[in-house]
């Protein structure tokens, strides 16, 4: 389980680096030098700060961010589960370990319209593939769930990645 601490202290330079890198590193031979020039600091400062932000968990990873849809993973199913609150941590931890679950979050119910408290993103090339994977989750949960559903996305209306805004 990975409970995320609220806003650890980061300074202005950290914030500027995150803002400058979140839409992507420039595809040039010396990307950190290019960033350094834009931000008026040294490339070593950029690399040191990014290393520290990674160590602190503020940056989760640095690397290639693929586009699932363009790679043929077009059946993006958000599986949602109604799980006893007392069992949610244990159940979520088990679901999060499945290799086909890309994100697994505990969220509040919004009764009466929304009864589900556990969300697991399941990617597949087809709905059949997603449904087969969701069946595996259901088998794993057994009687710990009181119902589930799969919400397929039919359109991406906006996607920019998590961004800082002022």
């Amino acid at each position: 389980m990975n409970r995320i601490a609220p806003s650890p202290a980061i300074d202005d330079l950290d914030r500027r680096i995150v803002k400058a890198t979140q839409s992507g590193l420039p595809l040039v031979p010396r990307p950190y030098h290019a960033l350094a020039e834009t931000l008026g600091v040294t490339p070593e400062q950029i690399m040191d700060r990014m290393r520290r932000l990674l160590a602190k968990g503020i940056i989760r990873r640095i690397g290639a961010v693929p586009n699932h849809y363009r790679l043929g993973y077009t059946a993006n199913g958000m599986s949602v589960w109604d799980v006893d609150d007392a069992a949610v941590a244990e159940t979520g931890a088990a679901m999060g370990q499945l290799d086909f679950v890309s994100h697994c979050y505990h969220r509040p119910r919004q009764l009466p319209i929304w009864p589900y408290n556990l969300f697991a993103m399941v990617h597949g090339r087809s709905r059949e593939e997603v449904e087969a994977k969701v069946k595996k989750i259901a088998a794993l949960l057994g009687d710990r769930e009181d119902g589930h559903d799969i919400l397929y996305s039919t359109r991406i209306l906006k996607k920019t990645g998590l961004r800082l805004v002022d």
């Binding site: 995150v18 992507g24 503020i58 990645g161």
Partner: peptide
């Protein structure tokens, strides 16, 4: 990498920020 980006298979090379560490 530029070609993968042009074809849309690669969104970007960059930092993925953890939710709720900077802002909420």
């Amino acid at each position: 990498l530029r070609d993968l980006q042009d074809r849309g298979a690669l969104a970007r090379i960059g930092a993925v920020v953890s939710p709720r560490t900077i802002g909420t």
